[in-house]
Nucleic acid binder design. Structure first.
Lengths: 222, 222
DNA sequence: CAACAATTTCAACAACTGTTGAAATGCTGC
DNA sequence: GCAGCATTTCAACAGTTGTTGAAATTGTTG
């Protein structure tokens, strides 16, 4: 019953039913949360029988985890690589705060780069999880702590003399702003009367990078 | 059936069952979201029959709204009053960016001031709603837009020459950091190894106020 | 006390939930 | 063709959901 893991071999023109389930689940989980979505809604959206989700993924929670993990490795690698690159270019002096934050954020633009709505939904799901008292601790830590600590280490080096307490609070501020951006609630659109678009990640990061860098510098000296 | 609105007259020592329902619903909705909580869980937590929630509030969604609205007027008034006060003290020159942000955030400390867990749960619920694509637009706007616009107006005055686009993006950053703080996920606790506590709003705002002020100044000139 | 209304419980409803075993279909190599 | 496997559907299950009408209780007012 547990279904042998599909090796994703045949990437034919029409996406497989298994992938359609993941796509629809990704979108619905991001919008309504884990409990706000039923397997029947997912199956219906994917034009598939209800039992198929259980066949491929097992329990509902397993499907949720599968959705979360599908893109996490790629995303982690892209961000890790972006940090590695600016560190290499900067040499012994090390990258600036702006460069580190840029490496932390820019890879997340792949959503609109590829024009793939899946990435946008996935990042909204990450925001949902990160902001949730219930899911936040148990899912985000395993998946992203290693990467986050790399960035905090880089920031510690770029801001000599900063206390760890200050560094973590500053990271917390940046993480919150990022989370709300990824959540893609459309609230900034309404509030600004259309001046800002919550799905325009590029504009968001254009403002966020210098904003956060100034905040880090203010709190963490230098 | 719709239940005549209790005028909240008798604030006896033991809280009424109606209030207990609101308290438990507040806590559970904040933790698990609207769909993650059943009326039976709420009734059980409040040591009350299931039907009582329907009697007092009607549908489940009406209870959700009642929880959200119970404290919103008081909270709005406290923040509005805090802004009015710094504006009065500052005179014609107008308050500084720090003072405005302080007025925006400090009233939210009433959670730990009063030692009342209810406020902490309520603010976590606001965070849940604000970060949700589904609830964010339809619930936050009605309730908080008026207040938010007051603060943005004040910031526009404190930052002459700033474009509205920049102002809204900066507010978006601050709102995100605040939302993650209110969500109280405990993630910063784990990440910092105990150096930072996500339920210590005072420490959070001590760092957030100068951090955000520096960001606003960086993006919005002056 | 009685009369009345507000509150609370009880019991039950139809609808929906996740899950599963068995049957049906499709695909690949002989 | 046919055997063997993975995939997909069908049908049904036991449990839970929000909701409601009627009964029971409590509180108030005369």
């Amino acid at each position: 019953m547990p279904a042998k893991r599909n090796t994703n071999a045949s990437s034919k023109g029409s996406t497989s039913k298994r992938d359609r389930i993941l796509d629809v689940a990704e979108k619905l989980f991001a919008e309504h949360g884990y409990d706000g979505v039923t397997l029947r809604q997912i199956a219906s959206g994917a034009k598939v029988d209800v039992a198929l989700a259980s066949y491929h993924f097992g329990k509902k929670l397993d499907l949720f985890n599968a959705v979360f993990e599908r893109r996490s490795a790629y995303l982690n690698e892209a961000r890790h690589e972006a940090l590695r690159r600016v560190q290499e270019e900067a040499g012994t002096a090390g990258p600036t705060v702006e460069q580190i934050i840029e490496a932390f954020l820019r890879p997340l633009e792949l959503a609109q780069e590829t024009g793939d709505d899946g990435w946008r939904h996935y990042l909204a799901l990450v925001a949902y999880i990160n902001n949730s008292p219930y899911w936040g601790r148990r899912m985000m830590s395993k998946m992203f702590d290693s990467l986050v600590n790399e960035f905090i280490d880089a920031l510690r080096q770029a801001l000599p003399g900063a206390s760890d307490t200050d560094l973590y609070w500053c990271y917390h501020n940046m993480s919150g702003a990022l989370t709300l951006t990824l959540a893609d609630t459309g609230r900034i659109d309404a509030l600004s009367g259309g001046l800002c678009s919550s799905s325009d990640f590029e504009a968001a990061y254009d403002h966020m990078i210098p904003f956060m860098a100034a905040g880090f510098r203010k709190i963490c000296g230098s």
